[in-house]
Design a protein around this nucleic acid. Structure first.
Lengths: 201, 201
DNA sequence: GTCTATAGAAAGATAGAC
DNA sequence: GTCTATCTTTCTATAGAC
């Protein structure tokens, strides 16, 4: 406080911190309200700054969203563990995290609540390509790994949607263990065999 | 048609026809762009009227959306046929209708592109309760029919999302027969046995 | 029954002071 | 580096003419 103009006034921050605060606020806001459901004023306000800084540091709302998607999808939240255990792990964690009371931030929620906007959908598609899909494909043996990986993502996204975004009652009130068993069964069916169209007919 | 003031001026319509035209336009617009992605001006314009008539006949955009959801979910598009065949039927139709070139109107698309708006999500949840879920539950034998019905809806919605709204490439380019086989397998797994938690542990 | 015109709010983005 | 103030557009909804 006694040195040049680096004195610490209560609001003074450096650019990197402010940028990070805006980005963090954007992830939370886009996850909770979706791309069209939140304005740059709200995001800026929650970060303790004004709306102008959002465009100063990110250029536009769209570019801010792109960065928010990137940091949201970067950690490996869906695919964790080894190939042998990741289906049941993923199912349990999915059910736990999508529970009614859980207020976790999750990239699937961000996706589901922003997918209605076509530009947001493109950005999300690219984010999935660059992050989670690659990890999922590497875990899958057999043919059509990419198709099966995306099919697994479909199942996961669908449960998030109905349970947490739409909120259909039977899924909200379902017994977690029972639901996790169902989902695990489905994911195993996709991850395991049945890639060869041999016995199909 | 040649009676009284029912004379046909090029633009003259009666109230019922205008209302129906607006509603039809609303279903198409909400399905294509989502609740937040379209304005009453566009909906009215596509119906050949002005925005004012939307509120005149429906009260508000929200009430218009509620009616659009109702007519969109009313026909039994997902559950058709008998209990024995509806899983494979549903899978084939789902894959066909969600193909990249297909420009069908579908209630799942309306749901997915509007789910980000919390009021829209509530309206959709009610629409599902009143229409498709009931039909699905009646087809399912065994315990937890409601949970399993909603789980099936989750799977269907998830595929619609990734294939048509987000547009992940492997799902877009997937062989329809192969994809339908996977989905049918999943739906059968939910519809068929495995309801009893007997062998779970 | 349908229109034009507009009110009133909120959005994204920018100019310029300090 | 961050602010206040404003521009411009777009939105839902309403008032009042014909």
């Amino acid at each position: 406080m006694t040195r040049e103009e680096a004195a610490v006034s209560p609001r003074r921050r450096n650019a990197a911190e402010t940028r990070a605060a805006i980005l963090q606020s954007a992830v939370a806001a886009f996850t909770e309200h979706g791309y069209d459901g939140v304005g740059v004023r709200e995001i800026a306000g929650a970060a303790g700054v004004t709306a102008m800084l959002v465009n100063r540091y990110f250029g536009s709302k769209e570019q801010l969203f792109a960065e928010a998607v990137d940091v949201s999808f970067a950690p490996r939240t869906v695919v964790s563990g080894t190939a042998a255990t990741f289906t049941s792990n993923a199912a349990s964690r999915l059910v736990a995290r999508s529970a009614a009371h859980a207020e976790d931030l999750d990239p699937f929620l961000l996706m589901l609540r922003s997918a209605g906007n076509p530009r947001a959908a493109e950005i999300i598609r690219d984010g999935i390509q660059r992050h989670v899909r690659k990890d999922l494909v590497s875990l899958l043996k057999g043919g059509n790994a990419a198709e099966r990986a995306e099919l697994m993502l479909s199942v996961i996204a669908g449960l998030w949607l109905m349970r947490k975004v739409i909120g259909t009652p039977a899924l909200v009130d379902a017994d977690p263990a029972d639901l996790a068993r169902h989902v695990s069964r489905i994911l195993e069916g996709i991850a395991g065999g049945l890639t060869a169209p041999a016995q199909a007919e």
